[in-house]
């Protein structure tokens, strides 16, 4: 199989940035879901998922992002997505989820957005 999914993450002041690259489908989504659950379980509730390097994105991927958003919101956190790929934006729009999950064209825009949001726990 040629498909692969890579994830790296680091903490910035405004949020934890998770860079995701490769193909997200029914095969690779479970590992993404597991990793995001771990990151949130460590207390990180302000996430920016950078999907700039994602070359395939389907409804399974959407499900993972919606689940991650539910988890960070339970901790009064926020989740934003960075993508400039028409394919990914299209899948968001078709399902109306572009109104539910904040999409940003650049990482800096997503971090600026996070910085404007209230911090959990005051």
């Amino acid at each position: 199989m040629s498909e692969s999914l890579t994830m790296t993450w680091h903490d910035e002041e405004a949020a934890t940035v998770v860079r995701i690259a490769g193909e997200i489908d029914a095969h690779t989504a479970p590992q993404l879901r597991t990793r995001l659950i771990e990151i949130v379980a460590e207390g990180r509730a302000r996430l920016v998922l950078d999907l700039t390097g994602v070359t395939f994105f389907d409804s399974t991927a959407l499900g993972v992002l919606v689940g991650a958003q539910r988890r960070v919101r339970a901790l009064d956190g926020h989740l934003g997505v960075v993508t400039d790929r028409p394919l990914t934006v299209k899948v968001f729009r078709m399902t109306g989820l572009d109104k539910v999950i904040a999409l940003h064209r650049t990482l800096q825009q997503a971090l600026d957005w996070q910085a404007t949001l209230p911090r959990a726990g005051g």
């Binding site: 199989m1 040629s2 498909e3 489908d25 029914a26 095969h27 395939f56 028409p86």
Partner: peptide, 25 residues
């Protein structure tokens, strides 16, 4: 019938659609 082969099927799909002159979109 395993998700591991989805990427193979996507590649086949793209190849066949290209033969019919579908646009990249």
């Amino acid at each position: 019938a395993s998700s591991a082969y989805l990427s193979v099927l996507r590649t086949a799909t793209a190849g066949l659609a290209a033969r019919l002159d579908f646009t990249l979109d």
